[in-house]
Amino acid sequence: MTDELRDERLSRLYRESAAGEPPPALDAAILAAARAAVAPAPPRRPGWRAWMLPTSLAATVVLTVSLTLVVRQEQERVEAEAPPPAAPSRPAESEAAAPAVRQEKAATAIEQKAAAPPSGLKREEVRPQSEPLARPAATEAPAAPAVAAPPPAPAPAAADAVESRAKAAAPLRPEAARAAVARTPEQWLEEIRQLKSQGKEKEAAESLAAFRQAFPDYRLPEDLR
């Protein structure tokens, strides 16, 4: 205290007059701020949890890419090793293994067929109920070789096997056999109808037999049964 200058009378009088208190709201605000300043902070998330989302995303991407590569390699291997005689020898699949020259011929044949559709019944009218199942495999066939890698060693052997089978099956002309490889079942059946209408019953029968072999599950229209 300031004892040497202390005036007790004055001090007593001052204390009697000493009015003035902070408002309660101010007290509350200050005390709340003081408490908040020393309140224990909420537990921080461990550092590894912050990396959880990006890490899981990266792992997903790596897994997806790896699986895609494995599946693609497996497809190529199966295509390369597929033994043609045992295979159902669907035209599309056989063509997928054929050399590029044959692909071009097949594509040309399809284009020619598309450019000059046969007269008579419309394609929609003769399309069997099962067509939606058979059609995609046939129509996608020309595109398949473009995706596939260059054929490995066994591939020419498989293509040759298809060709020799076609020769052994009948006097079906080689170009017709190649065309059959790339055409749709409907187109093939239309060709058979044309052969029959031209009186080429034998060729029509052979072609029909080849058709049955190529599409054993295909339900033939009544006029060709």
Binding site: G20, E21, P22, D27, I30, L31, A34, R35, V38, A39
Partner: peptide
């Protein structure tokens, strides 16, 4: 970290 200590101190000196 003792918030109660601050409150005691505040009560002493606020007025």
């Amino acid at each position: 970290g003792d918030a109660g200590a601050f409150e005691a101190l505040y009560r002493r000196w606020r007025s």
